[in-house]
Design a protein around this nucleic acid. Structure first.
Lengths: 100, 100
DNA sequence: CGTGTAAGGAATTCTGACACG
DNA sequence: CGTGTAAGGAATTCTGACACG
């Protein structure tokens, strides 16, 4: 419940969990669909969220989408999410200062 | 929610998550407090449950308990748990066949 | 008992490149 | 574009042992 976004998995573990090859996983990183971290020695570390993202990517790839399209969708979602947060916060601020 | 008991973590990840040394983690395995799996190559693989167990072990060790005592407590809990399941199941069986 | 460490070897991962398409 | 592979090197992990206490 707290491990979802901790970068703790090696590429070998991610291979098993996603049934993707290391080559594919590294390629999706190259296309910026996922952002693993690195150990001081350079070994990639993935989170469970990365794994879930990769499973989602696989589904989309099977539907014929390109890495470019998938990345575009992700960016869109992120922007929408940030906009929603901004709106929510500004709503709170407005209500907080309503009497001033 | 499904990854809790999947053996996917390397000892390096477990070191970080538990703040224990690899030596300690392997020793607790030797004392049968945890049961990691192995890759075909022999590398140990741990689950998040193993990590939680190790954190619990650390707490008990700090309180001065020995690995032996901790193992005894674990066995006890396991037996109680199995007994509870057995009782529950036999209750269901009895009620199911009450009319026969 | 519980844990640190140096030692040598084996398994894992890394990068950059060539290949196919 | 997306992925497989062989190549050589570097990081990670393994075991068994010695040490201290």
């Amino acid at each position: 419940m707290d491990y979802k976004d901790k970068k703790i998995l090696t590429i070998g573990a991610v291979e098993e969990l996603t049934e993707l090859s290391a080559r594919q996983i590294r390629y999706y990183e190259e296309r910026e669909l996922i952002q693993p971290e690195r150990t001081s020695g350079g070994t990639r570390k993935y989170s469970i969220l990365d794994v879930e993202m990769l499973i989602e990517i696989t589904r989309k790839m099977k539907k014929g989408k390109s890495t470019f399209e998938i990345k575009r969708e992700d960016n869109k979602k992120e922007l929408e999410s940030k906009a929603a947060i901004r709106k929510m916060l500004s709503g709170q601020i407005n209500s907080h200062f309503r009497n001033f």
